[in-house]
Computed example of a mutant assay.
Amino acid sequence: MRRVAILISGGGSNMMTLLRAMEEGDFPARAVLVLANNPDAGGLEKAAALGIPTAVVDHRPFGKDRAAFDAAVDAELRAADVDLVCLAGFMRILTPEFTAGWEGRMLNIHPSLLPLYKGLHTHQRAIEAGDAVHGCSVHLVTAALDDGPVLGQARVAILPDDTPETLAARVLVQEHRLYPAVLKRFASGDQTAIILE
């Protein structure tokens, strides 16, 4: 049974889908920690209500010292004896040293069909580019932003009257399908990519 930590910054909608999925009897992983960089992250209360241990490493006291912040996060993960890390709306760019320490054991979900639209404002950028299809990807985290090997994708048609908000809402539905499916397969040792339509 793989021991999973989920890192969040906000309300934790993807976190909740992962936590619910891991409660299923045949799931090869269990959540042992939800960690936020924001003490006010709504996901902390939701996780605690489910009996999941939580921790906060507030990034603000660290200022520009990203290495010290990452070291504090790493210490929490090691103390919880974590096997796998899932980033779920964790809005901090991690240092190469941190990502190297968790290489091959850290997943992220990103709201685009990588390698398209790394970074922010993905829905707006897809609409402005005139794309017919958008979606989300789960990938292994590397030192380069949104750049690791893709383990799964889900596609969403872009409609003529879509706004970034309406498109984001439909992509989020697919994120909630994709992330648990990829984690289940990955935690069982299978890195074959999943494609959801």
Rank of each mutant, 00 (worst) to 15 (best):
residue 17 T to I: 02
residue 158 I to T: 01
residue 11 G to T: 12
residue 56 V to S: 11
residue 29 A to H: 09
residue 128 E to W: 10
residue 23 E to G: 08
residue 175 E to M: 07
residue 115 P to R: 11
residue 182 V to P: 02
residue 4 V to E: 09
residue 84 L to F: 05
residue 50 L to C: 06
residue 131 D to W: 08
residue 193 A to C: 11
residue 66 R to A: 14
residue 152 G to H: 05
residue 151 L to I: 02
residue 6 I to A: 06
residue 170 R to L: 05
residue 4 V to P: 02
residue 19 L to A: 12
residue 171 V to P: 03
residue 152 G to K: 02
residue 167 L to V: 12
residue 173 V to W: 00
residue 49 A to K: 15
residue 18 L to F: 01
residue 63 G to I: 03
residue 40 D to M: 02
residue 108 N to R: 12
residue 42 G to V: 07
residue 97 E to L: 05
residue 187 A to P: 03
residue 21 A to M: 00
residue 178 L to P: 07
residue 57 V to Q: 08
residue 100 A to W: 09
residue 136 C to A: 15
residue 8 I to M: 14
residue 104 G to W: 00
residue 16 M to T: 14
residue 93 I to W: 09
residue 33 L to I: 11
residue 34 V to N: 12
residue 3 R to I: 08
residue 139 H to Y: 13
residue 148 G to V: 02
residue 80 A to G: 10
residue 133 V to W: 14
residue 26 D to M: 01
residue 27 F to G: 01
residue 93 I to D: 06
residue 93 I to H: 05
residue 89 G to D: 03
residue 45 E to Q: 15
residue 64 K to Q: 13
residue 5 A to E: 08
residue 89 G to E: 08
residue 29 A to I: 13
residue 4 V to Q: 05
residue 155 R to P: 00
residue 61 P to K: 08
residue 99 T to G: 05
residue 111 P to M: 13
residue 28 P to W: 09
residue 99 T to P: 04
residue 127 I to F: 13
residue 62 F to K: 11
residue 41 A to V: 12
residue 179 Y to M: 04
residue 23 E to S: 13
residue 27 F to Q: 08
residue 17 T to D: 01
residue 71 A to D: 14
residue 42 G to Y: 10
